[in-house]
């Protein structure tokens, strides 16, 4: 039988107190590794810190100067635009590919069960390996892709050094790497769609597409939303592929915000300014996490 509040009150306060001791070391570590640095990051963002000039470290004369200068910084504005392009393209492509492959692999045949595992490979590869693999595949003189297209009479030039294609080439490689995540989430959700409504719809004469559109899709939509949010957050952190494949270039066409911060801090040594942008990124990520938390709380455990 169910007793109210059964979640956690066995032998009660004392046990709770004992449990806290298991949490304390982790909390101390988390605090010193995350909360502490974030606080420090925020302080740094209020200073014009430059490691070559120690006097700048605790200089709070113009605390909001870094934040103000973002508005007049076209390169920052550009990085946001690039970020938005990359994020939207990543979310849309990964969801479409992931869901499409999931629908293909959903039926339980031997080949598809094996394929479900095989498809996961790109996702677990070290990003650096994905980077060099696609860098090679986009390099004209060694890439079999270029050879194939040349052979069928549709040769094309290097994509990564062409400003109008570079970003999309990176998005393509990123989609290859990450689509299995959306696939896994979709597969898990598809498996939980009850058979009843699907059979009822078939008996009512619905076509395959109608069954998908009217029965399956509404059921798995919340999972897709959560998956989309995860992809969005990951796209904000994009780095290794950009570093390997384009280094933010050509020019600044692939310089997303994350990459811009990296440049400002570790190339130009503008620590204060970089920190200010990082603080804004933290806030954005916090809001997205909060959203995920709210959604998953509502559809408890639908995705994990």
């Amino acid at each position: 039988m169910v007793y109210p509040g059964a979640v956690a009150q066995p032998w009660t306060e004392r046990r709770d107190r004992e449990l806290v001791w298991g949490l304390v070391p982790a909390l101390i570590m988390l605090a010193s590794l995350t909360a502490g640095p974030i606080a420090y990051l925020w302080l740094t963002s209020l200073t014009p810190l430059n490691l070559a000039q120690p006097a700048t470290q605790w200089n709070f004369d113009q605390p909001l100067a870094n934040y103000a200068s973002m508005f007049g910084d076209p390169r920052f504005a550009n990085s946001v635009v690039v970020q938005v392009k990359l994020s939207i393209a990543s979310v849309v492509l990964q969801l479409l590919c992931g869901l499409g492959v999931a629908l293909l692999l959903h039926p339980n045949t031997k080949i598809r069960t094996v394929a479900r595992s095989g498809m996961l490979v790109p996702m677990v590869l070290p990003p650096i390996v994905v980077g060099i693999t696609w860098l090679a595949l986009f390099t004209v003189d060694i890439s079999p892709i270029h050879r194939l297209f040349a052979w069928i009479g549709l040769p094309f030039g290097p994509l990564l050094t062409n400003p109008s294609t570079a970003l999309w080439a990176v998005v393509f490689a990123g989609t290859w790497q990450h689509f299995p995540f959306a696939m896994l989430m979709s597969l898990a959700a598809l498996q939980m769609v009850p058979e009843g409504p699907i059979e009822a719809a078939r008996i009512d004469g619905a076509s395959r597409f109608q069954v998908f559109w009217h029965v399956r899709l509404p059921f798995i939509a919340p999972t897709l939303v959560v998956a989309g949010l995860f992809i969005l957050i990951d796209s904000v952190k994009a780095f290794p592929l950009l570093y390997i494949m384009t280094d933010g270039g050509p020019g600044e066409v692939t310089e997303v915000t994350n990459y811009y911060v990296y440049r400002q801090v570790f190339t130009f040594s503008l620590w204060g300014y970089g920190s200010a942008i990082a603080v804004l990124m933290m806030i954005a990520v916090f809001l997205l996490s909060y959203l995920i938390d709210r959604i998953t709380r509502r559809n408890d455990g639908a995705w994990a």
């Binding site: 640095p37 974030i38 990296y262 996490s289």
Partner: peptide, 10 residues
Amino acid sequence: MAPPVAFTIP
């Protein structure tokens, strides 16, 4: 979820 760069700077 936090971007690694946010921890790396401090």
